[in-house]
């Protein structure tokens, strides 16, 4: 059975709100969520417990919003080892270029920046593009729905042209903005993704990203394509 994932839930800042989000994630059928916490979480286990009690796996995530390349590199050095998912809000092309190529960045997304500046992603991008449904439900930056949809469609076209992986998330900071995975996948189909690709963006793509990151954090992946096996066992 397919496990659905929403890698972008934002901690609302209070326990009651987090509990409601966990409950909603369970109702919507998610098996894995990424939870953004501001700064380093004081008690990550209690955060995980809120979801794991409902059978949902939690990956802790940090959203970086650097204003320059130097700041991005500094933040990556600071946070990479503490979080299972590192995402970067690409405010301009310089940050996008670095973030999409840096192996320490898992996800890049375009916040509510000005429309019209179509950022060209490099072909050898290693990170995945994240589409946040929240930017469509409640567009920010003065965009209307049509403009917000066009922006997401542009982003998807660029990602698909360059063979980038796509992850679709809610970006919600409360249960009211969370949406079911199949509904999100249906919308992505209308925005140009294949049916299989759309479903993968809310299931296998985010799940494999978290799985490989956990292996890296445990030291099981030495470098890209090389995995350390425990003991003298040989599975090959």
């Amino acid at each position: 059975m397919r496990t659905f994932a929403d890698l972008h839930l934002i901690h609302p800042g209070h326990a009651q709100g987090l509990s409601s989000m966990a409950e909603r994630a369970s109702i919507l059928g998610y098996g894995l969520v990424g939870l953004t916490v501001r700064g380093r979480p004081e008690d990550p286990e209690s955060l995980r417990r809120e979801f794991s009690e409902r059978g949902i796996d939690v990956a802790l995530r940090v959203d970086l919003s650097p204003s320059s390349r130097q700041e991005l590199l500094s933040l990556l050095g600071k946070y990479r080892a503490s979080f299972e998912i590192v995402s970067v809000n690409c405010a301009n092309k310089a940050i996008c270029d670095v973030a999409s190529r840096d192996g320490r960045v898992d996800l890049i997304f375009f916040g509510s920046g000005p429309i019209g500046s179509r950022v060209r992603l490099p072909k050898e991008a290693s990170s995945a593009l994240e589409v946040n449904i929240r930017e469509l439900i409640a567009p920010r930056g003065g965009l209307d729905l049509a403009q917000a949809l066009r922006k997401v469609k542009w982003d998807l076209e660029v990602a698909l042209e360059n063979g980038m992986r796509v992850v679709a998330s809610s970006g919600a900071d409360g249960p009211g903005l969370m949406r079911a995975p199949r509904e999100i996948a249906s919308l992505l189909k209308f925005l140009g993704m294949s049916p299989e690709g759309a479903l993968a963006s809310v299931s296998t793509t985010p799940a494999s990203l978290v799985r490989s990151n956990r292996m890296k954090l445990r030291g099981e992946i030495v470098c890209e394509g090389v995995r350390a096996l425990a003991g003298d066992r040989w599975d090959g």
Partner: peptide, 24 residues
């Protein structure tokens, strides 16, 4: 037409434009 219905569910809102959450 199921996909069209599903996609539209994302943008449900009440009469005042506040987002409403629903699922199939």
């Amino acid at each position: 037409e199921v996909d069209r219905i599903r996609a539209s569910l994302i943008f449900l809102s009440d009469g005042l434009g506040r987002p409403i959450a629903a699922r199939i």
